[in-house]
Amino acid sequence: MPQAYRSVEITVNGLTYNRQVEPRRLLSDFLREDLDLRGTHVGCEHGICGACTVLMNGYTVRSCLMFAVQANGAEITTIEGLAKNGKLHPLQEAFWENHGLQCGFCTPGFLLSACELLERNPDPTEEEVRVGLSGNMCRCTGYQGIVESVLAAASKMKAQK
């Protein structure tokens, strides 16, 4: 029998949450409203702007194109989970130092996309950064600050290794 509500157990930023959700509830709404993690932003709800990007089991996904029930049992990282022990992630630092944001609405999505990008390609060219981040829209920066930030983070992270 189909159920009006489903129980889910979802780990977000290391914390496990048990909730009842309607199957149609978008993961983006679940994170923002049910868990009150407001850092994940919603800019289009049709998969193009990338503002809602989170990491699911280590991969970037559009949280507006998934239902919360589908994340049952999954591990999710949102922007709130990027800084560890009060210390900014090197990408966050680089965005801060290189003026990688203006209004900051797109920023959480960019940061998580950039995380995956650098994991797959720790030493990207500028062109690769642009292509790698083409799934995220920014309307403020003209992208230059963002691209410079990611390149700066890449060299910093390489140096740290």
């Binding site: 049709h46 559009r62 998934m66 239902f67 029930v69 589908q70």
Partner: peptide
């Protein structure tokens, strides 16, 4: 994967009564 179907659902251009998630 939902990358085409969910946008259609969000726009309410598709309105199936039942979703069979094969993930």
């Amino acid at each position: 994967g939902g990358q085409s179907l969910v946008p259609l659902l969000n726009f309410r251009l598709a309105r199936p009564q039942v979703l069979v998630d094969i993930n």
